[in-house]
């Protein structure tokens, strides 16, 4: 639903987003300062409790929807990676580069309220509240293989909205040849974005060709393992494009842009010889740093990682190969 401001509110009356988003921090620090005085402390704790309650209501609502998610024929029957491993082993450089950093550093990340800016070649641009977008969608559970470009893989039961049905409500025009996505920038909550020696030009950006974005396999996930999407896995909404390397599945999305030209994508910009725009899983095209012929299926035992052959398009060739017919996949890696 498009949010329209009533006319009687002047722009100067609107609280700046930054101020608005920092209100919890403000209340926390206020609570600490006035802790000596019982009455004001109780008052601010009351406000905090109400904030907490509203978030919990939201979590409950989404989880109720997640519980009612439809099973999907696209799901694999392979053994799932245990929940704890999915929570504690992530690449989410906004929270740090080590695999355990996202788990350790994402606790303070606030996912409510969450707005998504929709722009570009579409009939219904605007700022949308995630709550509204999810409320009106039928969620699906999709158990997908996730293949990281670093040659490890997992099997994860995602819950989300097929991206096509989400994008269609913004009514893209014929000029929408690509869709560009952007991750939130919040250095105060994302320590990785504060790093002085990072070559990433925040925000993290990714993009898909419109037919890839509209493909029935492409998912906008809001949950996993029957729960609301954990912060370290890209809360509150992320892409899951199962036939591409994991870095294409952008996390914590705040902007969607319909564009005519191939958009800027983060890894492709940092090292174009290592990360292509397409980044389709392809055992025949090696990454300069490692072979892509096989992968380590996680969790691995200590003496013997579960090494399995990597499949073309991560095993989704039947569904997606036609998207690339006639294309040289060695050149368009």
């Amino acid at each position: 639903m498009l949010i329209k401001q009533p006319l009687d509110i002047r722009p100067s009356d609107i609280t700046d987003e930054k101020v608005y988003l920092s209100r919890r921090q403000f209340m926390r620090s206020t609570a600490a300062v006035v802790a000596a005085g019982a009455a004001p402390a109780l008052l601010s704790q009351g406000v905090l409790a109400r904030e907490n309650a509203s978030r919990q209501v939201w979590v409950r609502k989404i989880e109720a929807q997640i519980a009612a998610a439809r099973k999907s024929p696209f799901s694999t029957s392979e053994e799932k990676t245990p929940f704890d491993d999915v929570l504690e082993y992530n690449n989410f450089y906004e929270f740090g580069t080590s695999k355990s950093d996202p788990y350790e550093n994402s606790e303070q990340f606030e996912i409510q309220p969450w707005a998504i800016k929709v722009e570009g070649a579409c009939h219904k641009p605007g700022t949308y509240h995630l709550e509204d977008l999810v409320k009106e969608s039928q969620l699906e559970e999709r158990i997908y293989r996730l293949r990281c470009v670093e040659a490890w893989s997992m099997v994860i039961p995602w819950v989300g909205i097929p991206l096509a049905s989400l994008l269609k409500r913004f009514e893209p025009t014929m000029n929408a040849k690509y869709v560009a996505f952007e991750t939130v920038v919040r250095p105060e909550q994302m320590p990785g974005q504060k790093s002085l020696f990072s070559s990433i030009d925040w925000p993290y950006r990714e993009g898909l060709r419109i037919d890839e974005a509209m493909h029935p396999l492409t998912l906008a996930a809001v949950g996993l393992y029957g729960k609301i999407l954990p912060n370290q896995n890209g809360a509150p909404i992320r892409l899951v494009v199962p036939w591409k390397y994991g870095f294409k599945s952008i996390k914590s999305i705040v902007a969607i842009r319909f564009v005519e030209e191939e958009p800027y994508t983060t890894w492709n910009n940092i090292a174009p010889n290592e990360y292509g725009f397409y980044a389709n899983v392809n055992p025949k095209v090696d990454h300069p740093r490692w072979s892509q012929k096989s992968e380590r299926r996680l969790p691995g035992g200590l003496f013997g990682p579960k090494r399995i052959e990597t499949q073309m398009f991560n095993g989704y060739a039947e569904q997606v190969a036609s998207l690339y017919s006639g294309m040289d996949l060695q050149a368009n890696y």
């Binding site: 990676t81 245990p82 491993d85 082993y89 695999k99 355990s100 380590r296 996680l298 691995g300 200590l302």
Partner: peptide, 14 residues
């Protein structure tokens, strides 16, 4: 770390 399984799902890499 190895004995207490504190190395996560990819112990070899760690």
């Amino acid at each position: 770390q190895i004995l207490t399984r504190g190395l996560g799902p990819d112990p070899g890499e760690a």
